[in-house]
Every structure is written in C-alpha cells, then in structure tokens.
Amino acid sequence: MQATKLDTRLIPTHPAIANLLPGGGLKQGSTYSVDHSITLLMALLAGPSAAGSWCGVVGVPEFGVEAAATFGVDIERLVLVPHPGDQWLAVTAAIADVMSVVVTRPPKRASDTSLARLAGRLRQRGSTLLVLGTWPQSEAMLSLSQSVWSGIGEGHGYLAARQATITVSSRLGEAPRSARLWLPDPEQKFRDVDPRSMDASPGAMHSREKPRHLRAAG
C-alpha cells in the first residue's frame, strides 16, 4: 500500500528507533501509539526536543520530568497539562496547534468521530501525536518487551541500565520489526545493543561481582 500523501516530512528522531519506523522516522501530521512505556515515549520525544521543538504532554500526570531531562528532553520547552478533564479533545487540539510534538492519553470514552476530527487537525497543522494506549488510525504501534535490568541483584546494587526489545508494528501490513536496545545504557543514553560485544548479555556484567549485604555496624 502506498502512503496517502506525497510530501510527508520527517521530524528528527532518535537513530536507534528511526530505523524501525515505517518511512525511517516520525512523520509530521501522523499519529503513533505507544504501549504503556513512558521510557519509550521519552526516547521518541528526545529527538525533536533536542532539535528545538516544543513538546506538550496532555493527560499524563505521572510523566517523570527528571527522567525526561536526563534522557535528552529539554524541559524548558516541555509543557504539561496533567488533568485536561472533560475538555481533553479541545485541549489536545489547542496544544497541537502550537507544538510540533504532543503526547496524549485519550480517555476511554473518546468517540471515533472526535478522534477523526483531531487526526484531521493534526494533518493540517503538521504536528505529530504520540498516544499512550491504542489509537484507531495510528501510523505505527510501538511496544516494549523482554526488559532485562542490570546492576541490581538479590539485595545489592541498584538499577543501572536496561536492555529491552522494541517492536514496531505498522498499519500498512508489513511484518513487525523489532530491535534490541539499551533503554537506557549505564550512561543514560539510548543506543543499539551491539550483539558482538560483551554487553549483549547484561546479566553477565554483574554476575561476577560478589553480592554485598550492607549491615549496620557498631
């Protein structure tokens, strides 16, 4: 199937994720749905935000701003609307008018007509919508699976880094693509897992360390 528009422009996307997306990046005026993972959402926001775009987050009161800042989202250009309430559609549309990337979580009772109206507005304005949850006409659905945390053991260490598999299923009927990524790596960056290097199996990294149990002394 061909794309319905000729000149879809891409917005800057993190290279690790860009390769998985249909068309090679986030498209202006399109909608992407993200399944449950706010880290993945931040990975998608980091690219456009670093390139100077304003980002809006509507209806996600639990969005961790500090994590967003460490993962490369510029919080000076980040606007939060935690509780849009009944006016979710109007607020999201108003935010999408002025911001190039908008994160939103649709309420359960959002009707199909209102979603279609919002999608039309987005296409007209050229804003990209990232939806937490499902969306009927999304360009692609991103989900996270097989998380493996490193740096933490049985009562010792701390959460330091994580590897996870991102799966992108596009609506154009292509086979889902997936990749193994550091989300984040020990330096708080997102990058591909290099299968040849040591870090392919994060469990091995810390298994040689002897577990240390801290006890109060004296």
């Binding site: 706010i38 701390y158 959460l159």
Partner: peptide, 8 residues
C-alpha cells in the same frame, strides 16, 4: 542513583 524513574 540515575536513571530516574519515568513514571512517578
């Protein structure tokens, strides 16, 4: 210690 939690 970092990373900070993403959902608060």
């Amino acid at each position: 210690p970092p990373p900070a939690p993403t959902t608060i």
